[in-house]
Amino acid sequence: MDSVLARVSEATGVPADLLGGFLAVLAASAATGRLPGRADVDGLRESGALAAERGIPLRVLADACLHAAEITSGGAFGAVRRSMAAFAEGYEEAQRAAIRREEEARRVFVDDLLQGRADAERAEHFGLRLAEAYVVTVARPAAPLPPGDPLVRRIEQAMVARFGSHNILVAARDGLLVCACPASLTAASGEFTHHVRSGLDAWRVGVGRAHQGPGGIVTSYREAANAIDLGERLGLRAQVLKASDLLVFPVLLRDRNAIVDLVSTVLGPLTAARGGPEPLLETLEAVFASQGNHTAAARRLGISTRAITYRLERIRRLTGFSPTDPTQRFTLETAVLGARLLEWPARPLRDHPER
């Protein structure tokens, strides 16, 4: 048997220790006519798994088995067939286990990366060069993506095909779809959004600003997620929101006491209006979004232009502020934005503690 092992190993490059059990099965089958037993099959599965771990291609292993059967002959091809199935089963299970380990390592890496705990060596393994400036784009579906959703893999493959494996990281985290890419790839964010649009019925995308290094990825990720939150709180219609376009809102929120005071002082009198302040707030939002065009604002709200004029006059009488006056318009618009950020009037201003 040793001489046959040596010949097969030399001819195919498969280590002899992987084939010893197979030759024993062939010899027993040739002598008795019996197929391999359970213990034999288990041993062959282990050999198949070892071959996978050592990086020996399955076709090379199969060729070695057939070569050994050719040398020994003796009508043992029933044993060959069963042995090959066992080899393949062990080989494939080892590959599946390696994929599961890689997926778990990737999940842990993404969690660490987005919390600022990733190191450069691990980052390079997953295709990121942390010395560069990165932009993170986040997509929020209507329903959180379940673990292992095939959409994540599909989008990643499409992005990698265009931009290369050492430029893109796509992953799911906390129900969001996250894409990190170098800031130099200016088309990557738009490409990611295109695939999100193709794969999801309802979605909203946030784009962070470019920041340097591993901490920069964390910052850009938070900016992107916060852009989506701000868009929802402000009732913005755009599906793609850029953190760079929304910089004024974090500034407003930093001094929450001042915003509470502004909303209370400027818009508080609207609570005396029949029907409450909400219709008047919506009117102001529509007028501001239409650059003061009453006809366009009326179309947005589905009411008449006359109703717009009436409501604006009502606002002027209650608050003392007119949207047609440039200075007063700015105060009103800032107060309306502050009201949306504070979720007023649905949430009373007293529910916002001093900070």
Rank of each mutant, 00 (worst) to 15 (best):
P141K: 04
A161E: 15
R154K: 06
H125T: 14
A158H: 10
L151M: 05
A123C: 05
L130E: 03
I155C: 05
V135T: 10
H166I: 00
P144S: 09
R129M: 03
V135D: 03
R153P: 02
A133H: 12
L145E: 02
P146R: 09
P150H: 07
P141F: 07
V136A: 01
E156M: 02
P146I: 10
R162P: 01
E132M: 12
F126C: 04
Y134F: 10
P150S: 01
R140A: 15
V135K: 03
V136Q: 04
P144Y: 11
R154Y: 06
S165N: 03
V138I: 10
A158T: 14
H125V: 14
P146L: 11
G127V: 02
R162I: 11
P146W: 12
A158P: 00
V135A: 01
Y134N: 00
A161I: 06
A123M: 03
M159W: 05
L130N: 01
R154S: 14
L130T: 02
P144R: 10
Q157Y: 12
E132H: 13
A133I: 00
E132I: 00
G164L: 13
A133L: 04
G164S: 09
A161Y: 07
P144A: 07
R154E: 13
V135P: 01
A139C: 13
R153V: 02
P146D: 10
R140W: 07
D149A: 15
S165Y: 05
D149P: 07
E132N: 10
Q157W: 13
S165R: 15
G148P: 02
A131I: 06
L130Y: 12
A123I: 04
V136E: 05
Y134W: 11
V160F: 11
A142Q: 14
A142V: 08
A143N: 09
P147D: 05
A161N: 11
H166V: 02
G164N: 05
T137V: 08
R162L: 13
L130R: 04
I155F: 04
A131G: 13
M159Q: 12
A123P: 05
S165K: 13
R154V: 01
P144N: 08
Q157N: 15
V138A: 13
D149F: 12
A133K: 11
S165P: 00
A123V: 03
A158S: 15
I155M: 06
L128N: 07
T137F: 01
P144C: 11
M159H: 06
M159V: 07
N167E: 14
P146H: 12
P144T: 07
P141R: 05
N167P: 00
M159E: 03
V136H: 00
R129I: 01
Y134L: 01
G127S: 04
N167T: 08
D149W: 11
L145F: 09
V138Q: 09
N167Y: 10
G127M: 04
H125N: 06
R129Q: 05
